[in-house]
């Protein structure tokens, strides 16, 4: 029997990961694909930080009492969040540029327009 309650943030990770991936696959809207990418990214953060948590832990400040949460995943996630916002900005700049070129952010439309221009 799987202990659902103790693992629930891991299960939430799977849920958010699946939903984010689904958004990226299914939505024809490029902005929504970027949001889906963010959901996937955030779900991975959830695994990292959950793995570093100890029952009844205090934040990793030495001035507080034992036990502390593991600071390593926190530091990695901090860097990853800022990398994530950089990534989002570049992706959105590409979306805006695509709209500037094609007049739409629907992937199917853009594919059609590209095929037309090749012929």
């Amino acid at each position: 029997m799987i202990d659902l309650v103790d693992a629930h943030f891991y299960l939430v990770f799977v849920g958010i990961f699946a939903i984010g991936l689904y958004t990226m696959l299914d939505s024809p809207n490029l902005v929504k694909k970027v949001i889906g990418l963010n959901l996937v990214q955030v779900s991975v953060f959830l695994v990292f930080v959950s793995a570093g948590y100890v029952e009844g832990a205090a934040p990793p400040l030495l001035t507080l009492e034992h036990p502390h949460a593991n600071p390593l995943p926190h530091a990695i996630v901090l860097t990853a969040i800022v990398v994530g916002v950089s990534l989002t900005a570049v992706a959105l700049a590409l979306v805006v540029k695509l709209y500037h070129e094609f007049g739409t952010i629907d992937v199917h439309e853009i594919e059609r327009l590209m095929e037309d221009s090749h012929e």
Partner: peptide, 13 residues
């Protein structure tokens, strides 16, 4: 999850 540093960044970013 005892990660106030991450929480601050998440709220701002």
């Amino acid at each position: 999850l005892a990660a106030p540093d991450v929480a601050l960044t998440e709220a701002a970013v």
